[in-house]
């Protein structure tokens, strides 16, 4: 459980420390505000942003690091669980963040 929490923390850190994440969030918020998109569109956009950044940070940016290390340690399931938990958590946070910003901007 402790290891799983560490892996979750790793995935969260990899995503939120990525400039790509913040650029995409800023772009999505601007689009939402500029074209008055519905909160549902924002939810989908936020989910896409988180998923894209998470996959890019975990699998592309560090080469084959995570994939190879997980395969060698036979920790694929743990890594997938951590990725899933990170996605849900950050999706929620991103949605709330975007909607709060819009409320402030109104």
């Amino acid at each position: 459980m402790r290891a799983l929490l560490r892996l979750w923390a790793m995935c969260v850190w990899l995503t939120v420390s990525s400039p790509l994440y913040w650029v995409l969030v800023a772009l999505a918020v601007w689009l939402l505000w500029r074209y008055s998109l519905s909160p549902w569109t924002w939810a989908v956009t936020g989910g896409g942003t988180v998923a894209l950044t998470l996959l890019a940070s975990a699998f592309l940016e560090s080469g084959r690091s995570l994939r190879e290390r997980a395969r060698l340690a036979q920790a694929n399931l743990a890594v997938l669980s951590a990725l899933g938990a990170t996605f849900l958590c950050l999706w929620l946070v991103t949605c709330l963040l975007g909607l709060s910003l819009l409320e402030i901007g109104k």
Binding site: L14, S18, E61
Partner: peptide, 18 residues
């Protein structure tokens, strides 16, 4: 095969967690 944005201590701890 390292995570470029991780700190040294994070990198070792994450490897151990895996």
């Amino acid at each position: 095969r390292l995570f470029p944005r991780a700190t040294v201590i994070q990198q070792v701890i994450w490897c151990a967690a895996l």
